[in-house]
Simulated scan of single mutants.
Amino acid sequence: MRRFVRSHATELALLAVIAVICVFLSFATDRFFTLGNAFDLLNTSSVNIIFAVGLLVVLIAGGIDISFAVAASVVQYLTATVLGWIGGGNWIVGFIIAGVLGVALGCINALLIHGFRIISIVATISTFNIFFGLLMFFTGGVSIYNLPDWLTTRVVLFEREMADGTWAEITLPVLIMAICVFATWALITRTTTGRQLYAFGDNPEGARRFGINIGAMQFIAFGWLGLMAGIAGLVQAHYAQEVVPNALYGRELDVLAAVVLGGARLGGGKGSVLGCILGVLLVSITQNGLNLMGVSPFAFKMIVGAIILAAITLSNTSIERLLPFLKSRRVPS
């Protein structure tokens, strides 16, 4: 039992915090603890969770990327444009186009980092500005509203009528998010590549000496995040039923805060899909609760900043130091 608690301490702590916040919000507002609000929270969190599991792979590999949200905006716009050229397409064609474009943008980051030996945060700050600048320059900030019917038609997976006449619904983005979560979990826990990513992030020099292809690890990690960003961009277009060039701008810090809060270590070699999801849900629940309470959205940005600061401060602190009762008792000599 003690071993289980020690190995899942972050996830258990997040569950406890989420439970406390939910109890507080259920008393603070009568709209929070409803099935409709819970489903809405899940639907609106889907894009961020897709982003988060992609970013998790990069963090495990010891990198950091803040350009993924802007990359998703670029992919979203390019995919909508290409779909217009080919006459509409369908979901399969849309995912192929978005996935290929996303992987390509992710590989640009990997090329800069591995090929030119640029620190990942510096490289992605550069591509963040380059991608967004090019997008706004060529589009003029003009949105795309004429999207294919299959992309704008809402797909309801489950619905239930509430007592007040409203409907609680789970929509297609939740299914796509679940597939992305499962695929990422399988990649990092059930494949040799996943074990190599952990090893590379934990000890790059040791991984190199062991024969792990460092370049391949960089391209796989950033390519995977690019793939998730492309999918998330298409899902966002489906959810919003339009393509707005700057719609995803600014989400990178929210997602980064959530993933690091979920236990991913900024130094690499640590992180879990469950912790990542719980981190996103904690941030989303906090934002949702503040909105329902009528608190200014600027307060949420302040909270996200505090979360990032706390997560960075604690990321290299062992859980045994934070929870002394988990330490193994030494037998006196």
Rank of each mutant, 00 (worst) to 15 (best):
A168E: 03
R329H: 06
I113L: 08
I92W: 04
T139K: 11
M177Q: 04
A104L: 10
W150K: 12
S26L: 07
G263A: 06
I113H: 05
I130P: 14
G263K: 01
M162S: 11
G63D: 02
D65W: 02
S333M: 09
N43V: 08
E205W: 00
A237L: 03
A232K: 00
L59W: 01
Q287G: 11
S7E: 15
T44A: 13
S333T: 12
V235T: 10
L105I: 08
F39S: 00
A16W: 05
M293H: 03
D40H: 06
I179M: 15
A28L: 06
T189M: 07
L56V: 07
G268F: 07
D202S: 15
D65F: 04
M293F: 05
G275N: 12
S46E: 09
Q218Y: 11
G165K: 02
L309Y: 06
M217V: 08
M302D: 01
Y145T: 13
S45E: 14
A110T: 08
T171P: 09
V280I: 15
S315D: 15
S328N: 04
M136S: 09
E205P: 01
T152R: 12
A178I: 10
L15H: 03
L55D: 03
I97K: 03
A257K: 13
I285C: 01
G87Y: 11
A38G: 12
K327E: 13
D40T: 12
G289H: 08
R6A: 10
I21W: 12
H238D: 10
E205N: 13
V75F: 07
D65P: 09
H238Q: 15
L135I: 13
L314P: 05
L112H: 05
E11S: 15
H114D: 14
I49H: 08
Y77M: 06
L197R: 01
M302F: 11
A306C: 15
S315L: 05
R251K: 14
A237V: 11
G99K: 04
W91A: 15
A257L: 10
C22H: 05
P245F: 08
G115H: 03
G230C: 07
L187P: 00
V260Q: 12
S7W: 01
P332M: 09
S284A: 14
L112Y: 10
T286S: 13
L326I: 00
W224S: 01
G201P: 02
V259E: 07
L278Y: 08
V17Q: 10
G289P: 10
T152A: 11
Y249K: 05
R251C: 06
I214V: 14
G99A: 03
D202K: 00
G165Q: 02
K301T: 08
L248G: 04
F325L: 05
I113F: 07
V273N: 00
F39K: 03
P173G: 12
E242Y: 00
T189N: 14
F27N: 08
F131Q: 13
G201N: 00
S7T: 08
P245M: 06
I212D: 03
L309P: 02
L274C: 09
A71K: 04
C107H: 07
E161K: 07
V155S: 11
N146R: 09
G165I: 02
N129T: 13
G165M: 03
G223W: 01
S328E: 09
G271T: 00
T286Q: 04
M136F: 08
R117S: 12
